[in-house]
């Protein structure tokens, strides 16, 4: 695996001068993933914060080929790009390997783009799909998504006098993608960059459809001080709210063991979206959330102990 020094001499896939908020968590994820490719990459992105902040005409932050089509179709669009590449290879019109990477936010992946993703993965296109998962529709103002965790306050399922935020747990998309029997599926977090880089390298070395779900703290939607982006990302892992694991050809493996699990409160209390959980009356909900996390972690350990 390449170390940071080796990666730092590769061309940065993103320039500065994009308009993501100060302290945003996705540009690093994009850089970590794309820098892990030894071969040239071509990027396809869904509508969302990533695409909007990096491509305001006439300023593109992309140093690599980049295509945006619409919100729910980055996987389908990428499948077309990959098919064109295959046709050109067959007709001897193009030489050299290219890695295709589709990015989508959690809205563009868990919700509106779910069908497109599932279809493209099932068809077996040779591409890596990366969900940069900030657990809400950030671009349009922090609305809930299927990835929003239970108890989080969003603008479409806010905490209020008679509500404690989102009532249902998020769907487990990583597991759903594993159920597609892909050669490589992983869950990662930007705060554990070497783990993410290793996973991206593995994905690029694996032919066929790959999926990585990367948790991305959003300082605006989650409500925390911008310098904490990486720390919050690590806390999600250390509390087992967001375990790091991979599923390689059906074999599950936790890639980051958590021997001393921190209480989830340590993760939650740093974020405004969970602030209401610490008010009197929500003790039971907090306890339930802890139980849910514990149960999921135990189940995951049974599937693939580190």
């Amino acid at each position: 695996m390449a170390n940071l020094k080796e990666l730092s001499v590769r061309q940065d896939p993103l320039t500065g001068g994009h308009r993501a908020c100060a302290g945003c968590g996705f540009p690093q994820i994009v850089r970590m993933v794309l820098l892990s490719s030894k071969d040239p990459v071509v990027v396809i992105s869904a509508t969302g914060c990533l695409e909007v902040t990096t491509t305001i005409f006439p300023f593109s932050a992309w140093n690599v080929p980049f295509l945006h089509n619409a919100f729910e179709n980055s996987a389908a669009t990428a499948s077309g790009v990959e098919a064109a590449y295959n046709a050109f290879v067959r007709k001897n019109k193009i030489k050299g390997k290219i890695n295709f990477v589709a990015f989508g936010g959690d809205g563009g992946t868990y919700d509106i783009g779910f069908q497109s993703l599932s279809g493209a993965m099932e068809r077996g296109h040779d591409l890596l799909y990366v969900c940069y998962n900030n657990e809400a529709y950030m671009n349009t103002g922090v609305q809930r998504s299927g990835a929003t965790p239970r108890g989080a306050s969003t603008t479409t399922e806010p905490a209020g006098k008679v509500s404690s935020g989102k009532t249902r747990p998020r769907k487990d998309l990583t597991k759903i993608m594993a159920a597609h029997n892909l050669p490589y599926v992983a869950q990662a977090a930007g705060g554990y960059y070497m783990d993410l880089i290793k996973k991206a390298e593995k994905a690029f070395a694996t032919p066929g459809p790959k999926f990585i779900n990367v948790l991305q703290p959003c300082r605006l939607g989650w409500g925390y001080k911008p310098e904490l982006t990486m720390e919050i990302s690590r806390l999600a892992v250390q509390t087992c709210v967001w375990p790091l694991y991979e599923v390689e050809n059906g074999i599950w493996k936790v890639t980051m063991n958590v021997r001393e699990k921190k209480p989830i409160a340590e993760f939650l209390k740093l974020q405004d979206r969970f602030r209401h959980l610490f008010k009197p009356g929500n003790e039971q909900l907090l306890a339930d959330l802890q139980k849910e996390v514990d149960k999921n972690w135990e189940e995951l350990l049974k599937k693939g102990a580190p």
């Binding site: 179709n73 389908a76 790009v81 098919a83």
Partner: peptide
Amino acid sequence: HSAMSACVGAAAAGA
């Protein structure tokens, strides 16, 4: 929807 999306991807790739 995916048909047209894939067409756009492929055509943008020059196909």
